[in-house]
């Protein structure tokens, strides 16, 4: 027989610092939260959505109706081939299939069916404050620039210029 362990102080393993959730685990939790009709807020990691979303930013993902899924929306989705969870932007659509790409990514994620889209990013917070994240009117030009593979080139040039300006100071 097993022995019960611990008192009340040990019932809970306090998280984040102790628990490193994989992106797959996050996807499971996101689905479970959205099944109840709620939004889900969590810190993200990665560079593929720079400069709109950075590592450490806290994004809120909300359920999206089919009609609300459209060009420029930043969505959380499960890749149908790799089964990986990602947050990238819709840059093209055809019926119920969406072409998705990270703003700072060179490659497209491919065509993602609507059933793989878990929700849309509705806010991005950095250090407790909401930041510009290309979710409003800017989402359309950003999605076009991203589709044409121009957005990351512009970002690259902007970064180079800012480095040059810093060197020349």
């Amino acid at each position: 027989m097993l022995k019960l362990k611990g008192g009340s102080s040990e019932f809970f393993v306090r998280k984040e610092e102790d628990l490193r959730l994989s992106s797959d685990a996050l996807a499971v939790i996101l689905r479970a939260v959205q099944d109840k009709g709620f939004s889900f807020k969590f810190p993200v990691k990665g560079f593929s959505m720079l400069p709109c979303i950075r590592t450490g930013d806290v994004v809120t993902i909300s359920p999206l109706s089919a009609s609300a899924i459209g060009l420029g929306k930043v969505v959380a989705f499960i890749h149908p081939e790799t089964a990986k969870f990602n947050i990238h932007r819709i840059v093209g659509s055809w019926r119920n299939v969406y072409l998705i790409k990270g703003d700072n990514a060179i490659k497209f994620d491919g065509l993602i069916p609507i059933r793989n889209i878990l929700g849309g990013v509705t806010s991005v917070e950095r250090n407790g404050k909401r930041v510009f994240s290309g979710l409003g009117r800017a989402r359309h030009p950003i999605s076009l620039l991203s589709f044409l593979h121009v957005f990351w080139i512009l970002l690259f040039i902007r970064k180079r210029i800012s480095i040059l300006l810093q060197i020349n100071r």
Partner: peptide, 26 residues
Amino acid sequence: QGEFIIVPITSGIGDLEDDIFSLNET
């Protein structure tokens, strides 16, 4: 993944930023 995770819902949002808990075996 072997962890029993509890996410509280506050004001209509499941918030993983501050509060995420796992229960021990007991």
